[in-house]
């Protein structure tokens, strides 16, 4: 990897709006993420987090506004080729017709970055990093949901990205692996100063890894700042979201 590839990029979302079938999903989203920052996006289901993530990596084009990487619009020619961007999808999004090894090494083999033996070694290394060994020849259909997620993370790590987007990286994972993944997000951030944007419902993960947290509701940012500042935000939706828990009063629940 060259030196520039091992540094994060800064990213800016400027007044991003998006509607589907007349329904506004993103409404004037505006924020920036510094190089090497871990930026966490939280919010209730359906608040537009995943759609925003797709805009940030250039999979969707906003109706209004723009996404800038190092000051350049993401859809302008050459930007996606110049910077290494990776995304860990919520479902894993592994190619079902390929083995685990082929999935993880897909970026390297399609872009012909290394000979096959080197790719095989890198694949094994990255799989070991997410706690998976000896599954290179399995098909995605033979893996559990959590394993697919970890393979997907290994696939993103292979790119040695400058910007990595995680869509619910710890959903479907047991707490031990979830902690490992959280630590790995931070380790990657420290080691190669990758810029990380993490969408999660997991408050422990969010407050454990974030430099800054943004909270979304109905397509808008309702809170943005360092974890302590967000925790102290008096907005009722922020407080409701952060304080929701499973400690029910059994007598208050009627059949």
């Amino acid at each position: 990897m060259n030196a520039t590839a091992q540094q994060g990029v800064n990213l800016r979302a400027r007044d991003v709006c998006k509607s589907y079938d007349g329904q506004r999903v993103l409404n004037g989203i505006d924020f920036h993420v510094e190089r090497g920052e871990v930026f966490v996006l939280m919010g209730p289901s359906g608040s537009g987090k995943t759609v925003l993530l797709k805009h940030l990596i250039g999979l969707e084009v906003p109706d209004r506004g723009e996404i800038l990487i190092e000051g350049q619009p993401i859809h302008s020619p050459g930007v996606v080729d110049r910077y290494r961007l990776a995304m860990v999808f919520q479902s894993g999004a592994l190619l079902n017709s390929l083995s685990v090894a082929d999935n993880v090494g897909l970026y390297l083999s399609e872009h012909r970055l290394h000979p096959p033996e080197t790719i095989a070694r890198i694949v094994t290394e990255k799989l070991a990093l997410v706690g998976l060994k000896g599954i290179e020849n399995k098909l995605p259909s033979e893996l559990s949901g959590g394993m697919k997620k970890r393979v997907s993370i290994a696939r993103a790590l292979v790119i040695e990205p400058q910007l990595i987007l995680y869509d619910e990286p710890t959903s479907e994972l047991d707490p031990l692996i979830a902690v490992t993944i959280g630590a790995e997000i931070l380790r990657l951030n420290k080691r190669i100063h990758v810029t990380s944007i993490v969408v999660t419902h997991d408050r422990e993960l969010a407050f454990g890894i974030a430099d800054r947290i943004a909270l979304m509701n109905e397509g808008e940012l309702i809170a943005l700042g360092p974890p302590d500042q967000v925790k102290a935000n008096p907005h009722p939706l922020v407080q409701r979201f952060l304080q929701a828990d499973f400690r029910f009063n059994p007598e208050s629940i009627t059949p």
Partner: peptide
């Protein structure tokens, strides 16, 4: 069916996110 399933289950998005052109691939 194969490409439809890949589209629905975000495999095409995954390819595009890796800068792999789905038309070529």
């Amino acid at each position: 069916a194969e490409l439809g399933s890949m589209t629905v289950y975000q495999e095409i998005d995954a390819l595009r996110s890796m800068n792999i052109n789905p038309i070529q691939y």
